[in-house]
Amino acid sequence: MRIAIIDDEKPSRNELTYLIKKVLPDASVSEFASGEEGLKAIAEEPFDLLCIDINLGDISGISLAVAARKFIPEAEIVFATAYNNYADKAFEVEALYYLLKPFSEGKVRQMLEKYNQKHEKNIYDTRPLLSKISLYVDKKIVLLEISSIIYIESQNRVCIVHTKGKSYKDSNPLSYFEERLAENGFFRIQKSYLINLNYAVELYPWFNNTYCVKMEGFEDAVLPISRNQIKKLKNIICI
Rank of each mutant, 00 (worst) to 15 (best):
H162D: 07
F187S: 02
K140A: 11
Y136I: 13
L174E: 08
K169C: 13
S167N: 13
S148L: 01
I141M: 10
G165C: 02
S167T: 12
Y176F: 15
E153T: 12
S154Q: 06
I189W: 06
V158T: 15
L174C: 10
H162I: 05
S171I: 12
S171E: 09
K139S: 12
E183W: 04
G185H: 01
K164P: 01
S192I: 06
F186P: 12
L181I: 01
Y168P: 08
S167V: 05
K166E: 14
T163N: 07
Y168V: 09
I152Y: 00
L194P: 09
E153G: 11
R180E: 00
V142M: 06
N156I: 11
E178C: 07
I189F: 07
R180C: 02
P173S: 07
D138N: 14
S192M: 07
G185R: 00
V158C: 09
L143R: 13
V161C: 01
L144Y: 04
Q190C: 13
R188K: 15
F187W: 05
Y193I: 05
E179A: 12
K140Y: 06
I149L: 03
P173A: 06
D138G: 04
I189N: 06
R157W: 08
S167K: 14
P173W: 09
S154R: 03
S192K: 11
D138K: 14
V161W: 01
G165W: 05
E178V: 01
V137I: 12
V161Q: 01
F177N: 02
F187N: 02
D170C: 08
I146T: 04
I146S: 00
I149T: 04
Y151F: 15
V142T: 09
E153R: 14
K169R: 15
S175V: 14
R188E: 07
Q155F: 11
L174S: 07
K139Y: 09
Y176T: 09
S148V: 00
L194A: 06
L144P: 10
C159T: 15
K139R: 15
K164L: 10
K169W: 05
E145L: 13
S154N: 09
Y136H: 13
V137P: 02
S148W: 00
A182C: 12
Y136E: 13
K191D: 09
T163S: 08
I152R: 00
N184T: 03
T163Y: 03
S167Y: 08
K191R: 15
I141F: 04
N172C: 08
F177H: 03
Y168R: 10
L144I: 04
K191C: 09
C159L: 07
C159S: 13
R157G: 06
G165S: 12
S147A: 13
G185C: 03
I149V: 12
